[in-house]
């Protein structure tokens, strides 16, 4: 990916999560389920884990981002939904204001090389009816959170290592 400039990697159905004015798209096939924040368990929050969510009997860590895509330490009042990511095997939840399925498939273009950064969850950009969307995916999110969590000595990495 890093050796490409802007190049097409194919159109796909995507869901756009809203974070305080920023929209981040993930492949629709990676969205497992949606849960209201009212159904989350705050008792297990700590460091970058805002809450935990139960999916198919499994407790998943839930994270959130601000408009700069930095990990949040507390859940803003207007974050109402948790998007559980992982096709058949959900891995984590992402708290956001809202989420919507884009009506048309979009073509993700790899991030231009000059925009690459070692610590970014943004894998590409897409145009959706004139709107510019940031794109990511589950593996990029897991890698990003693990990196940030490592620097903060948070619990996500420790639980990953334990597994």
């Amino acid at each position: 990916m890093r050796n490409q400039a802007i190049s097409s990697v194919g159109g796909q159905r995507m869901a756009a999560m809203n974070f305080a004015g920023l929209r981040l798209a993930v492949p629709l096939v990676e969205v497992n389920s949606l849960v209201s924040v009212l159904d989350l368990d705050d008792s297990r929050s700590g460091a970058s884990i805002l809450s935990s969510v139960e999916v198919n009997g499994q407790e998943l860590p839930a994270f959130g981002f601000d408009a700069e895509l930095d990990l949040l330490r507390s859940v803003p009042d207007d974050y109402r939904v948790c998007v559980n990511l992982g096709d058949d095997n959900p891995e984590l939840g992402i708290l956001c204001q809202s989420v919507e399925t884009l009506e048309q498939p979009v073509t993700e273009e790899a991030l231009p090389v000059c925009m690459s950064s070692d610590h970014s969850m943004v894998t590409g950009l897409a145009l959706n009816d004139g709107e510019i969307l940031l794109c990511t995916n589950l593996s990029a999110l897991v890698e990003y959170i693990a990196t940030m969590d490592k620097s903060n000595a948070g619990p996500f990495l420790r639980s990953s290592e334990a597994n």
Binding site: P112, M115, H119, S120, L125, I132
Partner: peptide
């Protein structure tokens, strides 16, 4: 200009 977080400071964003 559409700013893109987590990119180098000298990259101001993208335009359409």
């Amino acid at each position: 200009v559409f700013p893109v977080p987590q990119t180098p400071d000298h990259v101001l964003g993208v335009l359409n």
